[in-house]
Amino acid sequence: MNSHVEIRLSGSGGQGLLLAGVILAEAAIFDNKNAIQSQSYGPEARGGASKAEVIISDEQIDFPKVISPDLVLALTQIASDKYSKTVNQQGILIVDDSIELDGNYNYGRVIKVPIIKTAAEKVGRSIVANIVAVGLIAELTQMISRENIEKAVLSRVPKGTEDLNRKALMEGYLLAQSVL
């Protein structure tokens, strides 16, 4: 991918997308890149369409907000309806397989995979869908080393859930390989 990548992660509040954004940004920093993570704040902490944004760059990052995302992730239909079409034409749109896409838009490259189902059935907990997504994004973009992704995941997830999250990450890599 480019040396300057803009990522928008969307879903519903409570899906841990902010954490996913923090992990991607932190892993990038471990990889000696620059990164900025930001999110939109609203009065509601749960539900609705929420998004977290990450910019990863080899250069200094000036403007801190995402302008034209190179990668958009959508985990829910509401989030997809709102954000899928924001991906730029050379970009990648990753959606959960539960989502219906409107055919009238040019989404860039579309990857539709069972993220939530993988978390629920293969890892055993749907709550780690965010980490499955992190693995998927990292593997698809090849921006960040696996070593640092794992380091960032383990430094940010609650103690006692390391194995669960490591497994989720692994399933994310496998999902990516299935579409490469």
């Binding site: 923090v22 940004a25 920093i29 620059n34 990164a35 900025i36 993570q37 930001s38 999110q39 704040y41 990052i61 801190p64 907000k65």
Partner: peptide, 10 residues
Amino acid sequence: DEIVGHMREK
């Protein structure tokens, strides 16, 4: 401001 206060950076 809200941007500098809330964003995460290296």
